[in-house]
Nucleic acid binder design. Sequence first.
DNA 1: AATGAATGAGACTTCATTCAT
DNA 2: CATGAATGAAGTCTCATTCAT
Lengths: 218, 218, 218, 218
Amino acid sequence: MIKVAEKKTREKAPRRTESKEVRRAQLIDATITSISKHGIGGTTMSTVTEIAGLSIGIVNFHFQSKHNLFEETLVHLAHEHHDKWLNAYRDAGLGSVEKLSAIVAAHFHPSICTRKKLSVWFAFYGEAGRRAIYRSLLDDIDVERFDLSVHLLQSIIEDGGYKVPPAEKIALTLEGLYDGLCLNILMYPDVFSRKTAEAQIFAYLASLFPNHFDRPVF
Amino acid sequence: MIKVAEKKTREKAPRRTESKEVRRAQLIDATITSISKHGIGGTTMSTVTEIAGLSIGIVNFHFQSKHNLFEETLVHLAHEHHDKWLNAYRDAGLGSVEKLSAIVAAHFHPSICTRKKLSVWFAFYGEAGRRAIYRSLLDDIDVERFDLSVHLLQSIIEDGGYKVPPAEKIALTLEGLYDGLCLNILMYPDVFSRKTAEAQIFAYLASLFPNHFDRPVF
Amino acid sequence: MIKVAEKKTREKAPRRTESKEVRRAQLIDATITSISKHGIGGTTMSTVTEIAGLSIGIVNFHFQSKHNLFEETLVHLAHEHHDKWLNAYRDAGLGSVEKLSAIVAAHFHPSICTRKKLSVWFAFYGEAGRRAIYRSLLDDIDVERFDLSVHLLQSIIEDGGYKVPPAEKIALTLEGLYDGLCLNILMYPDVFSRKTAEAQIFAYLASLFPNHFDRPVF
Amino acid sequence: MIKVAEKKTREKAPRRTESKEVRRAQLIDATITSISKHGIGGTTMSTVTEIAGLSIGIVNFHFQSKHNLFEETLVHLAHEHHDKWLNAYRDAGLGSVEKLSAIVAAHFHPSICTRKKLSVWFAFYGEAGRRAIYRSLLDDIDVERFDLSVHLLQSIIEDGGYKVPPAEKIALTLEGLYDGLCLNILMYPDVFSRKTAEAQIFAYLASLFPNHFDRPVF
DNA sequence: AATGAATGAGACTTCATTCAT
DNA sequence: CATGAATGAAGTCTCATTCAT
């Protein structure tokens, strides 16, 4: 009994302050779900608020406009993605191989590379061509990861004395592979999966750096 | 007199059918232009017909509905793409390397891999997640090309006695690379171009099959 | 029979071109009616289109926006008013007294000074404080009439050798009286009427120019 | 201790009621400011409470509804206006000329005839056409002043033996002039001012009663 | 008393589709 | 075949009002 009472008071105080953030997160989640279900074109204030179990007026209260809600949803996804591979990078061993491997693995982590989220990513990509704001949001994070990859690849190349294309070119190919494999996972889930995609990346790295990466067994 | 009459009817009859095809092509072109400019969400019957220089009522006459217009636009693009690499494949020399190279090159041909068209492709991809019809349209063509690639890779592997992943895996990676590089061309045109993308593919093939493909000079 | 047929073809051709103007006039009329009934705040696209007997989508087709419809409604009223007194001025005899009298009378003409229209005028005045566009629309016409009044008053003053305030001051007072009396007609229709308002203006002129204007009999 | 307790309760009780009145006045002031800035149509509970520096929920607590707030705001303005000319009338000398002059002057007193307040007045007038409640509120006060004016004019006419229109007619003209000049001050502040408006009224009175009113020097 | 998150009716606007000409 | 005025459903956004805190 006492515990319950304690809990209540404990919860009450923070709930006020949390409230706004909680609602925003709730609506962003609902937006992701809606976009994955109905696409960007089919996502309306109604689909979002219905999924969130809230009234239609609430979005403008917390996000001012639909456009803003979409933007913040993309920011949320981008941050989540960014944090994933940055933490993986930091938590990995000291070697460049471990660090690069961690980044690759992060891309295909079950919490990141879900069909639902991929679906949202590509919905935004489809719009990014003419929404400069979307592009710049994605750009910033991609550039950071690209630079990091170049750095790691460089040290692997030097370490192994490999005769391969310059690190920048390899990093570009990696970037292309990430996106392309994800798109294929989304479009052809029967053929592509997180596991196979990851294996393909490592196979590519193994073909370049045979002394540093093991060729995966297919 | 009779001749003239005959001519008239002769001309009229085909002109009508021709005219119909011309109008349809005109509207599909306008649709591609509109989607590349305004996105799928921003493309309306008005934007399309204005670009085509026609009246708004005409679309429903020729395509019954907006949805149908979009579908046929995607079919048009897919066919164009398909014809390009199939013809390239046929026109290439007899060797597997020549044929595979021709297919790769076809992907990045200036008439196919334009920012305008890529923009439309990815707009559709963004919707394809939940439009089965879009996905199946694309699927058919992709499968055909995939099978062809596997076949060609297989013969290269056998010819060179390479120790590489199975042909299917390499073909999958190639598919991923096509899409990923195209997406990057669209998103980061300053960093990725048709030429560099093509070179990356060939660099990948060269790293696998050093005796069959020259490593491109970066 | 022939006549009817003729009429039909005659009507058909112009109707196309007229159509747009006719619809616009119809909607402006409906707007005036709606504002006089429900006020500016209570006038919605629905009230207007219902009065016009048309569908709700039609306004944006012809006027782009509600705001634009309101603006054009005010322009219409202003032009109507302007034309009324300008024509009255032109059609009047040659003398300044006749011309000034005609202008005064025009203000209180049954087709201009209706409660319905006054109601719309003052609804717009109420908004004019912060809608520069409204004010400037009204300003232009008022200035033209003011200048004309000054000119006419000047010639009357000179003609009679009157010792009165300068023509500009009298004209200002007249302007004030027009508006004030109209407002009172609107607010207190039991006390003020077109006739009494007109008589008050003439009484004022008679008190200034006893040899040119007859004191009205109350 | 007891004293303190007494003080506390003594202060508390009145403070509550006072507080209520203070809040109401604060909100009415904010309403006037908001209407003068954003018009009636642009005035929302938010604009009012933001100006007042209070929360949005407070209006319904003190005024039950927006409609009620507006009504009480108009009442407040009307009372203020009424008190001004009634006090002016009482404080003036014993003569009818002094008293009438005081009433005229009160209309254009700097605390009454501000652009801000005029702006609110005419915003309400614009709605008054169809809001009987607004009209009746204004009517009561106007009638009182009208009767007073008639009485004063009557005594001036008798005193001077003037041959002028009946006092009622002159009073009506005065009423019209008040409103019309105020509207012109609002609409054309560059041309009309409190001073010139007042002078115009006195010029009008001087033209009627040359032995009682001095012609103002323009 | 006061706050402000939440609600939901209703306003404006867009746009695919229809149809008389 | 083609036009474009007209329709009306549906979407976004605003805002008076409510109510738990």
